[in-house]
């Protein structure tokens, strides 16, 4: 479907970026030694049948009827490891190897969302220190 794939790096397999950490496919990618685009389908909308109890509770606490901003959060892959991109510190957060990855992207996305919320709301998140250092009021 147009708009869901990436020029030069089509996502054909759920484990594509686990099996090939470079993810270099096209001639252009090989030439520059760099993967072009995201390591997940940014336009994939969530399948609400696969929502986890934690995420349902999050929606309830926030007063939302759906996953809201988490609709844009997906399980991605960095250097062959499952990771979720954290916009609050502009970097990937690796999912521990001890976590079993389901065999489909939708279930993986739910894990990524849950994991990201837990990290962002933790007092170990770098934003806590950033806030202390730079908050003006």
């Amino acid at each position: 479907m147009a708009g869901t794939q990436y020029r030069g790096s089509e996502i054909k397999d759920v484990d594509q970026f686990l099996n090939d950490s470079d993810g270099l496919e096209s001639e252009r990618e090989k030439e520059i030694g760099q993967h072009i685009g995201y390591r997940y389908d940014v336009n994939l909308v969530p399948d609400y049948k696969r929502i986890t109890p934690f995420l349902s509770k999050y929606m309830e606490v926030m007063g939302w009827d759906d996953l809201n901003w988490l609709e844009d959060v997906h399980m991605g892959y960095e250097e062959g490891a499952a990771a979720v991109f954290d916009r609050n510190n502009n970097g990937w957060v690796r999912v521990p190897e001890s976590v079993d990855l389901p065999d489909n992207q939708q279930d993986r996305d739910m894990i990524a969302r849950e994991f990201l919320i837990k990290f962002q709301m933790s007092d170990r998140h770098p934003l806590v220190s950033l806030r202390k250092a730079y908050m003006k009021f």
Partner: peptide, 27 residues
């Protein structure tokens, strides 16, 4: 939080996802 210390590619943060159930920022 100096530029030098943030330059590294990876930041190792120890964190337990099951330590505390929170749905809003700590502050």
């Amino acid at each position: 939080m100096t530029t030098e210390q943030l330059t590294g590619k990876q930041l190792y943060v120890e964190f337990d996802p099951d330590a505390e159930e929170r749905f809003t920022y700590p502050w």
